[in-house]
Amino acid sequence: MSDKNHNDDIELEALFANARAHPPVVPHEMMARVIADAKTMQPSGTGSRWRNWFAAFGGLPALGGLVTATCVGFWMGVAPPDILPDLAAAVMGVETTANPEYEGSVINGYGWDIGEG
């Protein structure tokens, strides 16, 4: 690198340094407008609390699992499988016991006993 080129580099760097040291001053009115925009556009705290709760809960996958579990639970309440105990009766304090006569009548109702003679 020639001496002249080297000097030019130094001088240019001095001008850059001067520019860095004296950045354009942000007008107060513009800064006020920017802050006003920020406040207008800022999401409300309530929304963010919901978002935080949602995130802490596990987000969309967790909510999907919860909905599925709720639907399955509701359906099992409406039409419980035979292998499950009668939870409603247990909660309501009604005891259900096996009644051979009743069961027999049900079987009679289908006419199975008649069919077998």
């Binding site: 950045p23 942000v26 513009m30 800064m31 920017v34 802050i35 920020a38 406040k39 800022q42 999401p43 409300s44 705290g45 309530t46 929304g47 963010s48 978002r51 935080n52």
Partner: peptide, 18 residues
């Protein structure tokens, strides 16, 4: 800022605008 912190709005504006 996105969570609604008003201080963050001012800090961000002060940092980024210049």
């Amino acid at each position: 800022y996105a969570e609604g912190d008003p201080v963050a709005a001012r800090l961000l504006a002060g940092q980024m605008t210049p």
